[in-house]
Computed example of a mutant assay.
Amino acid sequence: MKTIKLLAIACISAITFASCSDDENPTPTNEEEVITTMTITLTPASGSAVTLQTRDLDGDGPNAPVVTVSGNLLANTTYTGAIVLLNETEDPAENVTTEVAEEADEHQFFYSATGISPTFTYAGTNDSNGNPVGINFSVATGAAGTGTITVTLRHEPNKTATGVSGGDITNAGGETDIEATFNVTVTNPAVL
């Protein structure tokens, strides 16, 4: 009988301790953004804009993202770039770009290229510490050729690490919210 009473007291004590918490106000977690679609519009001073888009409506599902490029870029031309991020699992689609802008201190876009030699420059609004976010940027294409452009959005990068504010992702750390690689062709302008 004594063993049963001790066992009952032990069980009640365990339940009491397990149900109590010292943390009366748990820290809210900031869930990562759901991004199904990234659309990048590159607009030259004159001529037609080129759109780069990746769209993955099933997320980690079996279908690969649909990646499209609307046309060729012109050699030795500067384009202004703007990025729009959407969560198309919502109806209507949620514009995640707004959230990234609001949480500018916690986000940064990075741009890189292989096979071609464009120069990327951050533009637009910086975060509260004067570091780039990269929703807006410019790209000078350089010589004609074919290659890829990769655009990466990092969540909570170390923006004070060496090279990060200049666009070097090497020391950025953080987690990748979205990354896409686009096959691009840079052509010489037609001679009239």
Score class of each variant (00 low, 15 high):
49 A>K: 10
49 A>G: 05
50 V>A: 09
53 Q>Y: 04
53 Q>S: 15
53 Q>P: 06
54 T>D: 10
55 R>D: 15
58 D>E: 08
58 D>T: 09
60 D>N: 11
61 G>E: 05
63 N>M: 12
63 N>W: 12
63 N>S: 11
63 N>G: 07
63 N>V: 11
64 A>W: 05
64 A>Q: 06
65 P>F: 04
65 P>I: 08
66 V>W: 00
66 V>Q: 06
66 V>Y: 00
67 V>Y: 01
68 T>P: 11
68 T>Y: 04
69 V>E: 08
69 V>F: 00
69 V>Y: 02
70 S>A: 04
72 N>Q: 10
72 N>G: 06
72 N>L: 06
72 N>S: 12
73 L>M: 13
74 L>I: 11
75 A>Q: 07
75 A>E: 09
76 N>C: 04
76 N>G: 01
79 Y>E: 03
80 T>A: 15
81 G>N: 07
82 A>L: 15
82 A>M: 13
82 A>Y: 14
83 I>S: 02
83 I>M: 02
84 V>Q: 09
84 V>E: 10
84 V>S: 08
85 L>M: 10
86 L>A: 08
87 N>V: 06
87 N>Y: 01
87 N>Q: 01
88 E>C: 04
88 E>T: 13
89 T>I: 11
89 T>N: 15
89 T>F: 01
90 E>Y: 13
90 E>C: 08
90 E>G: 03
92 P>S: 05
92 P>F: 01
92 P>K: 08
93 A>G: 04
94 E>F: 12
96 V>D: 06
97 T>E: 02
98 T>A: 09
98 T>D: 13
98 T>F: 00
99 E>Q: 14
100 V>I: 10
101 A>P: 00
101 A>Q: 13
102 E>F: 12
102 E>S: 12
103 E>C: 05
103 E>R: 14
103 E>S: 11
104 A>D: 02
104 A>F: 03
105 D>I: 15
106 E>Q: 13
106 E>D: 15
106 E>M: 12
106 E>L: 14
107 H>F: 11
107 H>G: 05
108 Q>R: 02
111 Y>W: 04
115 G>P: 05
115 G>M: 00
116 I>K: 01
117 S>M: 08
118 P>I: 03
119 T>N: 14
120 F>Y: 04
121 T>G: 07
122 Y>P: 03
122 Y>N: 09
123 A>M: 14
125 T>S: 14
126 N>M: 14
126 N>E: 14
128 S>C: 07
128 S>E: 15
129 N>T: 13
129 N>H: 13
129 N>W: 10
129 N>D: 15
129 N>M: 14
131 N>G: 06
131 N>F: 15
132 P>H: 10
134 G>I: 01
136 N>M: 03
136 N>K: 03
136 N>F: 05
137 F>S: 02
139 V>A: 03
140 A>V: 07
140 A>Q: 08
140 A>C: 02
141 T>V: 09
141 T>I: 07
143 A>I: 03
144 A>K: 02
145 G>I: 01
147 G>S: 01
147 G>V: 00
147 G>W: 00
148 T>E: 07
149 I>N: 05
151 V>K: 05
152 T>Y: 05
153 L>T: 00
153 L>I: 00
153 L>Q: 01
154 R>L: 14
154 R>S: 09
154 R>F: 09
155 H>I: 10
156 E>G: 07
156 E>R: 14
156 E>K: 15
157 P>Y: 01
157 P>T: 04
157 P>M: 04
157 P>E: 05
158 N>L: 10
